[in-house]
């Protein structure tokens, strides 16, 4: 259910050096955090901007993986296939927003239930259309050895891509006209509308962006998993827990903070007890966190600021 189970860390007996040991621990945290962040990114963009939880998120990831698998097996290089998955899933998200989702603004529970219906249709529909399995995508890159440890190049790239995605999203929201309009809409839709911002269009593009990010993550994680109609289910627990713990107050900071924090909890538990207990530890953490910080750790910043000002 997480990165560490697929890329086993080869650890030989004896002869440990401090530096590689440290690098190996960092690598474990990094892959788990990257996995959580990639699973949750599309979801948290849509939640933060539109206050809608997309329960079809896992199926959007499945769509991305399917598109990438199709593309790769028709000779398109993997990086291009990933970009194709982003745009294809994003376009699908935009169509879905226009047809269905836009009826549910302000009815968050209605949106939750409806997107669950959509997820059932997508998963079972994929099974009916394409059968139980898609051809797998080989993991790009090999492994590098550092002392007694070896690291998967692909997971190192994924850690890098997660950082790039976070920076890119920050730039989109801070430095582009769309980002400005989106932040205005998020703060107060009616005032934004009165200022001439087409909030409907902002919502449409945001949902498309969230769906596209889900597709992108699905494509990126596809080489590390089996590509199947119900593959979306494996992302449900980690993605939603990351979002619950992150909260919707500050989208990007929440996602980064929550995935980092949760990987700190998950990694040691997974390594000692197994991946299932790692995921279980995530749920327990989520329950404890909401008891103390109901609005997630992204509300922590807002809470601390007045104390600092004092």
């Amino acid at each position: 259910m997480s990165g560490s189970e697929r890329i086993p860390l080869s650890r030989r007996e004896g002869g440990s050096k401090v530096l590689p040991e440290l690098a190996s621990i960092l690598y474990q945290f990094g892959t788990n955090a990257a996995f959580l962040l990639l699973s949750a990114l599309g979801l948290i963009v849509i939640l933060g901007m539109m206050n809608i939880i997309n329960l079809a998120h896992g199926e959007f990831m499945m769509l991305g993986a399917y598109v990438a698998s199709f593309a790769v097996h028709r000779g398109i290089p993997f990086p291009l296939a990933v970009i194709l998955a982003f745009f294809a899933t994003g376009a699908f998200g935009i169509v879905l927003e226009r047809l269905v989702i836009r009826r549910f603004y302000g009815r968050e529970l209605g949106a939750l239930v409806t997107t669950w219906g959509i997820s059932l249709i997508l998963a079972q529909g994929a099974l009916l259309l394409f059968g139980p399995y898609m051809p797998p995508i080989p993991i790009p890159g090999g492994a590098v050895s550092e002392g007694v440890f070896s690291f998967s190049v692909y997971w190192l790239i994924l850690i890098g891509i997660s950082i790039v995605l976070v920076v890119a999203l920050t730039l989109v929201y801070r430095a582009t006209p769309f980002g400005l309009q989106a932040r205005a809409t998020m703060q107060n839709p009616s005032i934004a509308r009165s200022l001439g911002i087409r909030t409907g269009r902002v919502y449409m593009l945001t949902f498309g962006l969230g769906a596209g990010l889900a597709g992108l993550s699905g494509a990126l994680l596809a080489p590390a998993t089996s590509i199947a109609p119900f593959m979306g289910q494996q992302f449900v627990a980690p993605a939603f827990i990351t979002v619950v713990v992150g909260g919707g107050a500050n989208v990007i900071a929440g996602a980064v903070g929550s995935s980092t924090f949760l990987s700190l909890i998950e990694t040691p538990v997974s390594l000692t007890l197994g991946t299932f207990y790692g995921t279980m530890a995530l749920l327990v953490m989520a329950l404890l966190i909401i008891r103390v910080l109901p609005a997630g750790i992204s509300s922590l910043g807002a809470r601390l600021r007045p104390a600092v000002a004092r």
């Binding site: 409806t114 669950w116 059932l120 249709i121």
Partner: peptide
């Protein structure tokens, strides 16, 4: 599942 999912939507 497709049918009940569509019914729900």
């Amino acid at each position: 599942l497709v049918i009940v999912g569509a019914l729900l939507v």
